[in-house]
């Protein structure tokens, strides 16, 4: 479905959606973040890129799996805890971040469905905003089969046409949102459509950073597993978790029992994000660590995204958002690393 919505009517539309939890990008200190709001005037679609992607809403950093109580007498009680039933709308999702969710969909799907993830995923409607100008200095979505107006993973995509938004819906979930405020949406004119086309062509051109010949990278990585290249490249790595925690596609996690009382033993089993960049991620109880150094951990990050994931799911596990580049405290540049990989030995 294609519609247009004047910018002035955006708050009116949001007003009709207040039965949902509504998230919008908000500026906090020096960065942007998705925050829940009940004020329709708060919706802000003119923003750069949030530090944390909407992954943090669908796959929160902390998820309670179950609560337990184990006293010395009687059987332990185990109570399943599920996410609250509350539909949500996230406004201002960047196409790269939405596409990332189609990758986590694959991981959390399969034979064993992760019901925590899916519950949140299914009750959340994603309203995207096209990137008419790159929101970030290190955007490179076009290089990884993405685009600044990709619809993958989105329910609705808005494109800024100056005084109005071009509105496209792709799913039933998305149409439902429009139907809640039918009167506000008009059919697009021929000019609107023409403007949209022009903006789209321009927006792609504005993306400066890129990886050339990305297809050559996976086979190259296959050969480079034992290469000293990784030692060189990882010299400056600090082994922090920024690149992976902030990546919209990274999904690794840890499960721990956290105790609130020791007699009787009461507590919760909790899932938290974890990252292949931390040494304890793979360390066995014996002290043996299959990935003992920074080099093997950097290699794992790159190979997982640009080789293993490709083999398993036929996609790069990267949507070109550029967060890992811009926010790396020591400026490790994924694109530079990939360029070097592609040209390695030639």
């Amino acid at each position: 479905m294609q519609k247009v919505l004047t910018k002035k009517s955006l708050p009116q539309w949001v007003k009709k959606l207040l039965s949902y939890t509504i998230y919008t990008p908000v500026e906090e200190d020096d960065h942007w973040n998705f925050v829940a709001t009940d004020n329709p005037e708060d919706i802000n679609l003119d923003y750069p890129l949030t530090t944390l992607s909407p992954k943090k809403i669908i796959f929160p950093q902390r998820e309670i799996f179950l609560e337990f109580c184990d006293s010395t007498e009687g059987n332990p009680e185990v109570k399943e805890v599920l996410p609250a039933e509350k539909s949500a709308v996230i406004f201002g999702v960047r196409p790269c971040d939405a596409k990332a969710l189609t990758f986590t969909d694959k991981v959390f799907g399969g034979d064993f469905k992760d019901i925590y993830y899916w519950k949140r995923r299914n009750q959340t409607t994603l309203v995207g905003i096209s990137c008419n100008t790159p929101p970030y200095t290190n955007c490179f979505c076009v290089s990884v089969n993405g685009s600044p107006y990709s619809k993958e993973g989105l329910d609705i995509l808005l494109t800024d046409l100056g005084d109005k938004y071009f509105v496209e819906t792709y799913t039933k979930k998305g149409e439902k949102l429009l139907n809640l405020a039918k009167g506000l949406f008009k059919s697009p004119t021929a000019k609107d459509k023409k403007d949209l086309e022009k903006i789209r062509i321009d927006s792609k051109k504005k993306i400066k950073r890129q990886i050339k010949n990305i297809k050559k990278i996976p086979p190259k990585l296959k050969e480079m597993f034992d290469s000293p290249f990784w030692d060189e490249e990882s010299m400056s790595c600090l082994r922090c978790g920024i690149c992976t925690y902030l990546c919209p596609t990274c999904h690794c996690f840890d499960i721990n029992d956290e105790i609130t009382s020791s007699s009787p033993i009461k507590g919760k089993r909790i899932r938290t994000w974890d990252t292949c960049q931390f040494p304890d991620f793979t360390m066995h109880s014996s002290g043996h660590n299959p990935r003992p150094d920074k080099a093997s951990r950097l290699r794992q990050r790159i190979l997982h995204k640009f080789l293993y994931f490709v083999d398993r799911y036929q996609n790069y596990q990267c949507t070109g958002c550029g967060r890992c580049i811009s926010l790396c405290p020591v400026g490790i540049d994924l694109l530079e690393v990939l360029d070097k990989v592609r040209d390695y030995g030639s």
Partner: peptide, 15 residues
């Protein structure tokens, strides 16, 4: 054997 947490191919530890 590798460190495992989820058992269902999602947590990434035993990858």
């Amino acid at each position: 054997e590798n460190k495992m947490k989820c058992g269902v191919g999602k947590c990434g530890k035993c990858n």
